[in-house]
């Protein structure tokens, strides 16, 4: 069984590797880059929502904080881009660490609203701290990313970078969710009371998941900034936060690949609607394709509330490493 899974992974890796070689259109290439970036954000948020059982409707703020931190460090402080990519995610992580403890004490609706409010607050800051962020018109002149002497210019190169980062993220998430901590998260999911009663500091674990999710969002944001070389507040608003949450839910809570699938579906759907709706309704202007976006989400929530990947399997079977059993028997 393990080898079958490995084989599948290798196939996926090869397909991903070959994509830039097959696809020539820069439009499709950029779609795949966006999917990769969003998938990184969604993986982090998936840890928070699917494992730590907390919701964030402000994840775009962390994404934006990463992007702006990277952009400002690179343009105003003239730091080397690669260093910026490494340092920038620390800003959202720190913010998450500071706001995490009080905010994660809230539950359900209140947590939704608090994170949503936080997201909008940060978005307003992006727009209105003009001297630092360039205001609504944004920051330009972000240099290309270079690794050693290699400067990443083409979308193909950025694709490998972003999907490489996604690969690492997936590797880390797979490790984490199969580690004792992953098991503890599952335990917290069923009974927080019992988890506390066996000495587990649930608040601290949730906070760590929150910080990690902010870090990943920030990393994706930093990569985004160097890819587009120009950032403005608009991709970091409430709508993006909602989309990130939807990616996680649509893909399937508590699954490793769900967020990736969710990111692909949502980016794909958005692009499809952007193409299809004007074909069907040529006279209308504006981005009203969001109507269908909204409707499709409502339908998914009504008919597949657990997400597309969530087959009604018991998580029990897979949660314990089989290798352990064979060595201990």
């Amino acid at each position: 069984m393990g080898s079958k899974k490995n084989l599948l992974l290798i196939v996926i890796a090869i397909v991903v590797f070959c994509l830039p070689l097959i696809i020539e259109s820069s439009y499709y290439m950029s779609i795949f880059i966006v999917i990769g970036l969003y998938a990184i954000v969604a993986e982090g948020l998936g840890l928070l929502m699917g494992y730590a059982g907390q919701v964030s409707f402000g994840q775009a703020a962390f994404y934006g904080l990463g992007a702006y931190a990277a952009a400002i460090l690179a343009t105003r402080c003239q730091w080397p881009p690669l260093l910026c990519v490494c340092i920038a995610p620390l800003l959202p992580s720190m913010v998450a660490f500071i706001i995490g403890r009080p905010i994660l004490r809230l539950r359900e609706h209140y947590l939704v609203l608090a994170t949503l409010g936080f997201g909008i607050f940060v978005y307003v800051l992006f727009k209105d701290l003009g001297t630092l962020t360039g205001g609504p018109s944004g920051l330009t002149g972000i240099p290309y990313l270079n690794i050693g002497s290699l400067t990443l210019v083409t979308d193909q190169q950025y694709f490998y970078l972003v999907w490489g980062a996604l690969g690492l993220t997936l590797f880390g998430m797979a490790n984490l969710t199969r580690s004792p901590i992953g098991r503890v998260f599952k335990a917290i999911h069923t009974s927080e009371r019992a988890a506390e009663a066996v000495g587990i500091d649930t608040a601290s674990l949730k906070l760590q998941a929150f910080v990690l999710s902010a870090f990943l969002a920030g990393l994706a944001g930093a990569l985004y900034a160097f890819w587009v070389t120009f950032i403005s507040p608009s991709p970091f608003g409430f709508t993006s936060s909602v989309e990130f949450a939807l990616m996680v839910v649509v893909g399937g809570l508590g699954t490793l690949w769900g967020p990736v699938l969710g990111a692909a579906l949502i980016v794909g759907l958005t692009e499809f609607l952007r193409w299809a709706v004007p074909v069907a309704l040529p006279n209308a202007g504006g981005e009203f394709e969001i109507i269908f976006f909204g409707i499709i989400f409502v339908l998914i929530m009504l008919f597949r509330p657990k997400g597309l990947l969530a087959i009604e399997k018991s998580s029990v079977a897979m949660s314990h490493p089989t290798t352990l059993r064979s060595t201990d028997a």
Partner: peptide, 11 residues
């Protein structure tokens, strides 16, 4: 208050 989604050993 068992962790019903985990195995006996995992609990």
């Amino acid at each position: 208050e068992l962790f019903t989604n985990l195995t006996v050993a995992e609990n």
